[in-house]
Amino acid sequence: MNIHAVRAIYVKEMMRFFRTLAQSFISPVLSTSLYFVVFGTAIGSRIQEVDGVSYGAFIVPGLIMLSVMTQAISNASFAIFFPQFTGTIYEVLTAPVNFLEIVLGYVGAAATKALFIGVVILGTAALFVDLQILHPLAMIAFLVLTCTSFSLFGFIIGIWARNFEQLQLIPLLIVTPLVFLGGSFYSISMLPPVWQTISMFNPVVYLVSGFRWSFYGAADVPVGISLIAIAGFTTLCLLVVYWIFRTGWRIRD
């Protein structure tokens, strides 16, 4: 195991994050606050309690997931796209590192950043609503797994993308709709039956549901299934990354 290489990549990526710390900090705080003003206060006052919690509190887990997923994807995809764009990827390709070390460095850093954002949002939310976290360990597990799996997914997008447009394409066309329709702002049980069935094909539903369960103890799908879903997604992404480095797809001629 080339620990020095993992650390070198991780530290480099984190330094990039710290250079823009204020920006990394302010933007989630601001957007979360806006969500609370719009959804929590303006709309939430007209919506009754959902699953026994106030609407403002109900949307907190979904809000965190929303930001964590999009941040993880954009961080990781940019982190591996940029070296290909500048040509500096040659260094990683010629260094004595295997795929796991490269992934640990880049994905580890992207996941750390996403986790940081998630915690910031949680803290901001606590200023607006009374939060309770019934299962803190499960909450942390869901958060860390989501950061990791979506960073892995972003990493794949970053390798696949040939230009900046493509880099934005998948998050915009697929991830954002899935996340918004994933039960972040409502309970699946509030939907007509047809849409409930359709929602079951949306992987994000399982994440949000499991994560919300760790807060309030109520879920749209059994929590065990949520865990299996996210573990499965993580494994799938890892396998794809392994295959990419195995075959050199899009990174080695």
Partner: peptide, 14 residues
């Protein structure tokens, strides 16, 4: 300095 350090790290050197 950082980019030169990065290469050294990538090559597994302390």
């Amino acid at each position: 300095w950082n980019t030169v350090s990065l290469t050294r790290g990538l090559y597994g050197k302390p």
